[in-house]
Write a protein that binds this DNA or RNA. Structure first.
Lengths: 207, 207
DNA sequence: ATCGTTCCTTGACGATGTCAAGCCGTGCGT
DNA sequence: ACGCACGGCTTGACATCGTCAAGGAACGAT
């Protein structure tokens, strides 16, 4: 029950029980990609999903609830995709696995900017929401475990906790800049492979 | 001279020509601190500033223009404060100066979260705005120059461009997480000095 | 045939962003 | 002294928005 309930709670877009709900989430993602998450309007989402103007409020309770739903959706996706990336790179040496995880994290943000915004860059629904906090922790648990394992294997030294935070901060920083189109600003003459270059440099420097 | 002219141009809130404008900017900062930048409403700002409901549109043209004004205001402040921090730490060894600059950057974000949001975390007015882009570059020029100087002094090795980007990404990442209250989530048992600890670790690892 | 659920709509409310038009004091030219 | 342009702001109106209460249609179970 718990697993089904959790899956249902965190990925409501895939349950067939409420067709309109999934349509709304899809429409919202489209709109968020076009005009940014905090410019999406409930009524426009409903219009695009072919439903009445109050359908979003019905399903999500409020505008904030709708963004929250997108965030939970995205966090479940990120958890899956980071896990898959780890399996894909399981045969590589320790530091390469860290690079792969970091690159995958930023790539996810660029692949799903609307989701990423809702997940980590929309301060409003972030405060005191246990479900959301837990989902965020769960999505990153893989990275944390990887750091500890690579550390245990002796491929890196130092304090694993600090290193995990460094990687989180750096990945989130690059992802945020990239999603906002600010990397080019900051980077000046930076090519398209800046992201991997920075992450690689970062991991190479670890003690 | 340049500093005065730049401050006047980029900090219109301080010119006495339009008393209402400064009052609006102040009211907006207050409101943004309470409910987040993208939840501030023009009418509520006007109300709090004691002006009519259309005063903000008169001065800033639009909601987006008002956020842009807050961003420019903040960028000028950041430029000044980073510069001051550099002078304060000019006598320290190279790496310590990098730490001081990074810590000051994040401290600024925590001291002025509303400004920081408008400056670096509000994607809407960021696209294709030369003035804003230029102001962002100018605000960070000090950090870039510092990295190059410390590199020229031989205190760090590697590619200064990459290192500058690393520091930017990391600082922005920490600042974003901290402003959103997510650092505690990610950090688990992290104390209040996490920020300096991460930055210090980062700088210590530089080649 | 009636009940209960699920899924959604209708209608209304106050509040918002934006635009056009106008008001009013200060300073300046004449 | 007088007009007059200009900066600084207001008034009023409009479409649109988020939210809420109430209700209805489809549909399986009883």
């Amino acid at each position: 029950m718990t697993s089904t309930a959790a899956a249902t709670a965190s990925r409501p877009s895939s349950v067939p029980g409420a067709p309109g709900r999934a349509a709304l989430l899809r429409a919202m993602e489209d709109l968020a990609l076009e005009q940014g998450v905090n410019n999406v309007g409930l009524r426009e989402v409903a219009r695009r999903a072919g439903l009445s103007h109050a359908a979003p409020t019905h399903f999500f309770g409020s505008r904030e609830g709708m963004i929250r739903a997108l965030a939970l959706d995205g966090l479940a996706m990120l958890e899956d995709e980071l896990c898959a990336a780890q399996e894909r790179s399981a045969h590589l040496p320790g530091r390469e696995r860290l690079v792969a995880d970091g690159v995958e994290f930023v790539a996810f943000a660029l692949r799903h900017p609307a989701h990423y915004d809702a997940m980590f860059r929309t301060p409003t629904p972030a405060r005191g929401d246990d479900v959301l906090d837990r989902a965020r922790l769960a999505a990153l648990e893989g990275l944390r475990a990887l750091v500890e394992q690579v550390h245990a294997d002796g491929a890196i030294g130092g304090d694993p906790e600090t290193i995990y935070l460094q990687l989180c901060a750096m990945s989130h920083g690059i992802a945020s800049l990239a999603v906002d189109g600010l990397l080019h600003d900051f980077g000046g003459a930076a090519g398209p492979d800046v992201i991997e270059r920075i992450i690689r440099a970062q991991v190479a420097q670890l003690p």
